[in-house]
Amino acid sequence: MNVEQVFREERGRLLATLVKRFGDLDLAEEVTSDAIEAALRHWPVDGVPDRPGAWLLTTARRKAVDRLRRDQAYAARLALLQVEVDRADPPTTDALPDERLELFFTCAHPALAAEDRGALVLRCLAGFTTPEVARAYLVPVTTMQQRIVRAKKKISQARIPFRVPDPHELPERLPGVLQAVYSIFTEGYAAQRTDLADEAIRLARILRSLMPGEREVTGLLALMLLVHARRDARAELLEDQDRTLWDQDMIAEGGALTELALTGGHGPYGVQAAINALHDQAEDFASTDWPQIVALYDVLDGLAPSPVVALNRAAAVAMRDGPAAGLALLDELAGEPRLRDYHPFQAARADLLHRLGRCEEAAQAYREAIALAGTESEQDFLRRRLSVVEG
């Protein structure tokens, strides 16, 4: 098993468990880092243990107790922790089925600024690096660092408890949790890490079992299933993908959930699911219902306007009305700050320029996209597209 992958998979679980037990986010982060450093020393020599998560948790707990023992301010708490340090928490009837979801809802507390909630979840509980969180929110790394520090400080100053929210509090905090789960999925999709994508889908299924009446929970699950169904063919552009590789069971489930999500109303995730259902259910690329997709992007732009929605709508318009029409819309977005370092914007421009026969400009746009891409898999894909243009 790849050691880096183990750390990515276990970090979120470890932090959630430690925060729940110790009630101190900074302490949990510190001893999690200490435990990972210890693993980096021991595992290359001794091998990855059969239960890496348990090894990391035991190591982190011991380091937390050692740290608290040195801090007299925590003396009263230490007595209780020493009793519990090697004992699992007893199950409770009102607990959420996943400790990370408990902490997701805690970090979505309304006392925190809306822009800080999801960032805190992704950094501290989902195991994202700060640059990865910044990329998810289309902001500079320094801005994201400030947001995370601000959120943690607010939790400490406002004494926000790390507990399962009461049932009536869950709907208010749900949007932030859905955003965090979807960001986990999109990061996994971008990096071609099926473990992250699968984990996001698993969390969404838990949320739906808890809140079956929430349309946006159903819409998010549908959206992720419909996108993930294409995972085995996604090394190519959508128009070049071998559709026999698509997961038809996943498409069928996602399509059925999309219908449920749009029953009696619609939200942003449900509309995005409907767009992807049209892609997945078309017999081939040529028969895709682009007018309907553009219409759905118009609806989405009214519900949740953003530069990324505008970018995707421009790409759909290019398929409906021709590349010149799409490129004109992209040119209107060229001054948008949040798209300046967003490599899909340059990739979309490159594709349309290539379709128009403007190959030198297309090649330059692909080079800019490669420089901005955050993962090796994205860079490899863009290099292949560049070689086509240059050829």
Rank of each mutant, 00 (worst) to 15 (best):
L138F: 01
P337T: 13
A151T: 07
V121F: 06
G322S: 02
E283M: 11
E283G: 14
Q241F: 01
V294W: 08
H228I: 00
E29T: 05
A204H: 07
V121A: 14
H354C: 02
T288Q: 11
D94K: 13
S156V: 13
G12C: 08
L327C: 01
A60R: 07
L15R: 14
G23M: 02
E132F: 00
L262F: 09
T258C: 10
E99Q: 09
D298Q: 12
L311T: 05
V31Q: 04
I293S: 14
V294R: 12
A295S: 15
A108T: 05
R313G: 03
T258N: 06
H343C: 12
L278H: 14
V149L: 15
D301T: 10
G267V: 04
R358I: 01
D94I: 06
A286D: 15
A38E: 15
Q364D: 14
A310C: 03
D24Y: 00
G270E: 02
R193H: 11
L352F: 10
A324P: 01
A316Q: 04
V3P: 07
L207V: 01
E360P: 00
D249Q: 14
L238H: 13
A16Y: 05
D24W: 04
A180S: 07
R163Y: 03
A235V: 08
G302R: 10
A126N: 09
M211L: 15
E199N: 11
L221F: 09
V388C: 05
G270T: 02
A282R: 12
L220I: 06
A363Q: 02
E336V: 14
D116I: 01
R384A: 09
T59P: 05
V85P: 02
F162H: 08
R117K: 11
V45H: 13
Q379H: 11
G254E: 02
E376Q: 10
L78V: 00
R320S: 08
A119H: 03
E4H: 14
A373C: 11
Y137P: 00
A229L: 00
P291F: 11
Y189M: 04
C359V: 10
V181F: 11
Q241I: 02
L303V: 01
G127W: 06
T375H: 15
L333K: 12
A235P: 05
P344E: 12
L125Y: 06
S377D: 08
L382G: 10
P344K: 13
E214V: 03
E37G: 06
E10M: 09
R62E: 13
E336M: 10
V309M: 02
R385D: 09
G188S: 08
Q157M: 05
E99R: 09
A73S: 15
